[in-house]
Structures are given as structure tokens and as C-alpha cells.
Nucleic acid binder design. Structure first.
Lengths: 249, 249
DNA sequence: CGCACAGTTGACGCACATCAACCTGGGTGG
DNA sequence: CCACCCAGGTTGATGTGCGTCAACTGTGCG
């Protein structure tokens, strides 16, 4: 099971997948989903865990008048839902932003947190990472303009996709519609289109046929005020001054 | 110690404070800080835990050109930093938004997560709550206009302050400057001022002398698209269909 | 062929930014 | 005790980023 996931994703975040994979005794079932399908409803309580294997998905929130914000874009390797493994999440809706392949991991015997201390560790790291990404998104929504936000999103996706081996020469598949990009950045589809045009005119990127090429990553990151530090798990803190719980986590 | 904190805060979130308080053998040291002072720097690694006892504080992020966004407003009872208890946080900067009293809890013997399973539970609940608040803030930054965002912030603060007994008759002390409100909502101070005027003109609120009065809470919440559900810890999920870990968390 | 959908572009309007002036109240020092 | 100061609040004039509306294009698919 573990090798199955890792070969599929070429992931480098072995610790997380190790923790999860070890919990399952049955094989992972794969499902193909078209674009624009809700994977997870806030009122459903699925037993299985779901992992995104291919494509793009997104968690989103709606205002009562229909305004939508995609609070988090999911890339291959990301957890869609942990199901009964750890039903800790606030209720959220997840939809596909592109044709997706998702893996369903049915859990025979739900673990508890004492028998699987590694699970707690992984869970907290996972939440930390989401929090860091969410904070950067807040910065885009609140203080970056549309071009900067777009550039930042591209830098972030490149970084996240690179860790699962889906980037070659600063180029990767980007099949998210401009409408969904707009709901991620908190602007309108029309303005995304114009901001894209502006970005293209700088020569920093090419986006065509569902493929994004970053021609000058350093310049793009500068424009976006992008610092990849928030995506990397911090190096193990030195033991001096650390408490036992730090090492455990 | 526990009674000390609870009497100071009149908190109802007893579980969290119980978990924390039990860890300490020394007394809590109090410190008074003026407005606009950084409590926590991202490079510091304090041993002590800090809790906000009075006033307002805020976590913030800066862009390299000086643009600032307050990602989270802290109210009395909120954890500023857990220090060595659980040094799990992404590195953040925290500043006072008003004159504050903070409590310092020095931890003699750092716990580990196996000896204190309740700590892990509390930690995850704490992160969940922060995440839910952050998500609502994203919605404000991305999809609410300035008046709606302001109204939503007021509703949220009322709710959070009410749980620590600092609200009477939908009225509470609000000593955050318009400049800091602006950095919370992602707009300019001038525009906060005008949005405040617009809100006042609706008759829904009165804000004067550092005191906010909500005259028609229901109408304000409707205007803000506010739903308090995200702030309340979800009721214990029914046992049917739940796994062991759900009950543990 | 024609329909549906995503992308593109133009004209125009509005929410919010910018710049600048002025007001106000509390604190401070002479 | 008054004069001053200064941070924060308030307001006006004007500029701009983004929204809105609408038309058109291209492209894949039944």
C-alpha cells in the first residue's frame, strides 16, 4: 500500500504517508471524477479517507447570496478528507476544479490516538501546513493586488507540485479555470483574465493549453513577495531549549 | 492556579484552561504592556507560555514593502504563545493593539504528549478554532465589502468576548484603533472610518469612547452574513458511525 | 451543424485608495 | 494652569483597481 501511494505520487513527504498507509489493510480504491463535482459535503460523514491523486480540487465556502471563495486549492498528494481516521475537521465543502482521480482508503479498524502516536504527530503537522498556506492566502486577499496574488498562487503551486514530482523545468499542468482562479483570489473572472494578460506581457510566464511555464522564477517570486519557507516543514528544532513534546511533535 | 485564571477571565472554556493550568507549578506572572508593542518575534523561542488577560493583541504579517495584515485578533483568554508547552506554531509576530495585561506561565517540566493526552486534545481543538476563525476572515477579505467585513468582525468579537464574560447587553469595550482595524480587514484607515460612519448611520451600532454598542444584533449578523456556528465547539458527535478517535478528539 | 462553455475584450461604474487638510482630546512641559 | 503637541479620528477631492454588463471569439462535443 505504501509503495503504491508513493509510486503514484512520487511524494517526498514520506512520513505522512507512512503514518496513513500503515492504518489500512484493504487496498485503495480509485475513482475518476469529472470537473466541478462536489466530493465532500459538510453534512456528510464519510467513513473512508480520500486522497487526491491527480487533478485539482478545492475547499470552498459560500455566502448566502452566492458569493464563493475557494479557501484552499488541493493538489495531488493532498488529503481531501481523513474520514473516520480523524474526524477532526471543521465542516467543509470540497469540489473538483479539474478532472480528478481520487483514492479512497477504507479504514477497517479506526485507530485511536494513543495506539498511534505517529498519527497525532502527522495530524498536527498537516494542520500546521494548512494554516501556513491559509495565512499566505489571507495576505494575498488582503494586501496583494490581483497580479501579485496570481503570481503568488503560481509560485505556491509550483512549489507544492514540485514536492510530488509534477514539475519539470518550472513548468507544470494548470487546468484550473479562470473562474475558479477568481474565486481563489477573491476577484472576478474578467479581472483574472486581465491580470493574466498583464502577467504574460511581463514575459515571466506562459499559460496556454492548460500548461503553465515559469520563465523567470526568481523575478516572479519577487513580484509576488513569495518566500517558500512557509511551505517547508521547519527543520527539526535543535534539542537545546526544546521540550519533550517538541521532539514528539 | 486554575481558579486564578478562571476568576480573572470568567472563562467558560474550562477544558482548555484545565489542561494548561494543571501543567504549572509556579505562579503566573502578570505583565502590563502598552499599546503597539511586539510581544512575540518570529525568531524568539520563549520558554514560557503567554496568555492574554486584558486588552487586545494581534498576530500580523508584513510584506517586504511594509504592507501589513493582521491575521488574527486576540481577545482576553486567548493563547498568545504556548512556549515550550507545545512549540508547534509557525513563526509569527504578535503585537498589542491596546494596553494589555498578559500572563506568563513558566513551565518547569515540559510535558510530553503521551503523559498528557488531554493536552493533545486541547491543542487540536485550539488549532481547529483558529482555523475556523481564519477561514471566516478569508471570506471577509475576499468576498465581503468593507461594511460587511466590519460588521462581521464586530459580531465575531462580541461572540468571543461573551464567552469570557466581557459583554453586557451586546455592548463591550473596543479599543482597537481604526488603523489596526484597517490592517485586519485589508483596507485603508480612511476607508474604515467611512465604513464605520455608514454602519453608524444604519443605527445598528454605536461606537464611541472605546465602547461598542450593538443595537440590533440580529440585523447586524444578517448584514455581515454572520453565523456563530464556526466559533462554537461542535457538540459531541453522536456515537453512531463515529470512530474511537472522534471521541478521543 | 449548432450548442455549451471558457476565454477575451471594450465601455462604463463603483468601491476603495490616495493625498491632504482639519478637528479633537488627552498628555506633557514650561 | 495654560500652551503646546501629537496620535487618532474625520472629512473632502480626486485617482485607480476592480466590478459589471455585454458582446464576441474560439473550441470541443453531440
Amino acid at each position: 500500500m505504501n509503495t503504491l501511494i508513493r509510486s503514484e505520487l512520487l511524494t517526498t513527504d514520506s512520513q505522512w504517508l507512512d503514518s496513513i498507509s500503515a492504518l489500512f489493510t484493504t487496498n485503495m480504491r480509485k475513482r475518476e471524477l469529472p470537473k466541478r463535482v462536489d466530493v465532500l459535503h459538510p453534512d456528510s460523514t464519510p467513513q473512508s479517507a480520500f486522497i487526491l491523486l491527480k487533478g485539482y480540487a478545492g475547499r470552498y465556502r459560500l455566502l448566502s447570496d452566492g458569493r464563493r471563495l475557494i479557501t484552499m486549492i488541493l493538489v495531488p498528494g493532498d488529503i481531501i478528507s481523513l474520514g473516520s481516521i480523524a474526524n477532526y475537521q471543521v465542516k467543509r465543502t470540497v469540489t473538483t476544479l479539474a478532472p480528478c482521480r481520487i483514492g479512497e482508503l477504507s479504514c477497517d479498524t479506526p485507530p485511536d490516538n494513543t495506539s498511534w502516536p505517529g498519527l497525532t504527530t502527522a495530524l498536527i503537522r498537516h494542520m500546521q501546513r494548512d494554516e501556513a498556506i491559509a495565512e499566505e492566502r489571507m495576505l494575498s486577499l488582503g494586501r496583494r493586488n490581483a497580479v501579485e496574488s496570481l503570481a503568488h498562487l503560481f509560485c505556491e503551486l509550483r512549489e507544492r507540485l514540485a514536492t510530488v514530482g509534477l514539475v519539470t523545468d518550472d513548468s507544470f499542468e494548470l487546468t484550473i479555470s479562470q473562474e475558479d482562479l477568481a474565486d481563489s483570489l477573491g476577484v472576478t473572472p474578467v479581472h483574472v483574465n486581465r491580470s493574466l494578460r498583464a502577467l504574460r506581457k511581463t514575459g515571466l510566464i506562459t499559460l496556454a493549453g492548460g500548461n503553465l511555464i515559469i520563465h523567470d522564477r526568481q523575478a516572479l517570486e519577487l513580484l509576488a513577495h513569495f518566500d517558500s519557507a512557509y511551505l517547508q516543514f521547519e527543520p527539526e528544532r535543535s534539542t537545546e531549549g526544546s521540550s519533550a513534546i517538541v521532539r514528539n511533535y
